[in-house]
């Protein structure tokens, strides 16, 4: 049964389906509907919703609930995520699973509330202190806002690590048909959790390792799981890449505009294909290399002044020229604008 649903609300529907029963958050445009939906829905099934005093408090409430083994989440936008970075580092260090949604807006500072993809570095490269990674998923539709939130809970538990759903103001605010049917989603047992029971009395949740050797061993274990994630969890989408000479790369809302632009450019006879990373970390490096190997050039489009493009360049490691086009400040390129850019890039091909 399809329902017309806002992206932000689809996040909560996905979370409910995934068994999330606790939400701690602070309002911010353009993410507030996530908190509002949680406030509306969670109490109706016996879950917890608390509007915290800040994002700093939110993420630490998430830490507490995650330590007790709950599926728990929060959501915010750039300024709030900046405040959460401390907590995310602690969550990663303590290996606590949780889901954090970043509905990106334009920065830096207060910026504005229009969409940007400028939190890529902050979310994908870390942002908090220390050696850790976030699992980062980038939905591009309302349906994916729900489905990737569910996946985020599964991956967070599987790797005992925070998982970020990284999206933007447009995907959060737009409405599209959502097709979601109830299904059983089992969360794994968490024997490490601290629940105030005799069985869990010996458990200890912490990110503190005073001895250098202990902390190194801890980090090696974390590295090992990150390698496992890199081997097993990359997700991506390709569109008309089979005979493409030019490969355009974009994620989230940009991938939607690029998809239309690819259609239009193909009508103009340009052999162009789209590669869309769905997991930003782990980045689909190998798959991108394969897709790019069949093409002459790679063209990255972002709502930033060049963040994901660094991962594209790292992945291709000089084997293909990589060009970049970015819009910032809350501007989203139109299909026509990107068709023009694709024509330019295509004309420059040998």
């Amino acid at each position: 049964m399809r329902q017309l649903c806002k992206g932000n609300i689809a996040v909560i529907k996905g979370a409910l389906l995934a068994g999330c029963r606790a939400y701690y958050g602070y309002p911010i445009t353009p993410a507030s509907e996530i908190a509002e939906a949680a406030a509306l829905f969670f109490p109706e099934i016996g879950g917890t919703f608390v509007q915290a005093e800040s994002e700093t408090a939110s993420i630490n409430m998430v830490y507490g609930a995650a330590a007790a083994g709950m599926r728990v989440m929060t959501a915010s936008s750039g300024p709030g995520l900046s405040l959460m970075q401390e907590g995310i580092s602690y969550l990663a260090g303590a290996e606590l699973p949780c889901v954090i949604v970043d509905v990106m807006r334009a920065g830096p500072g207060l910026g504005n509330i229009a969409p940007e993809q400028s939190d890529y570095f902050a979310m994908v490269k870390g942002g908090g202190h220390g050696n850790y990674r976030n699992l980062v998923l980038a939905p591009a539709s309302v349906q994916e806002m729900a489905e990737l939130t569910i996946l985020a809970f599964d991956l967070a538990d599987k790797y005992r690590n925070p998982a970020i759903v990284l999206t933007d103001g447009y995907v959060g605010q737009m409405m599209e048909p959502l097709d979601l049917e109830y299904r059983e989603i089992a969360a794994p047992e968490k024997p490490w959790a601290v629940k105030g029971t005799p069985e869990t009395r010996k458990n200890f949740v912490s990110s503190i390792y005073l001895e250098a050797d202990d902390l190194e061993a801890h980090q090696r274990r974390m590295e090992a799981k990150y390698i496992r994630a890199q081997q097993n969890e990359t997700r991506y989408e390709q569109y008309h890449t089979e005979n493409a000479e030019l490969l355009v790369v974009g994620y989230g809302i940009v991938s939607r505009v690029l998809r239309s632009a690819v259609d239009e450019a193909r009508r103009l006879g340009i052999k162009v294909g789209l590669f869309r990373p769905i997991t930003l970390w782990p980045f689909p490096t190998e798959q991108l290399k394969l897709a790019a190997a069949r093409t002459q050039k790679v063209f990255v489009v972002e709502l930033s002044n060049g963040q994901m493009v660094e991962d594209v360049r790292l992945a291709l490691n000089g084997t293909r020229p990589v060009e970049f086009y970015g819009r910032v400040g809350g501007n989203v390129p139109s299909v026509e604008e990107l068709v023009e850019k694709i024509e330019e890039q295509s004309a420059a091909l040998v």
């Binding site: 701690y24 630490n60 601290v194």
Partner: peptide, 14 residues
């Protein structure tokens, strides 16, 4: 400084 927030999440879970 975050003990009361973490304790909030813990107690509401338990």
């Amino acid at each position: 400084g975050r003990a009361p927030a973490a304790a909030t999440g813990l107690h509401r879970a338990c």
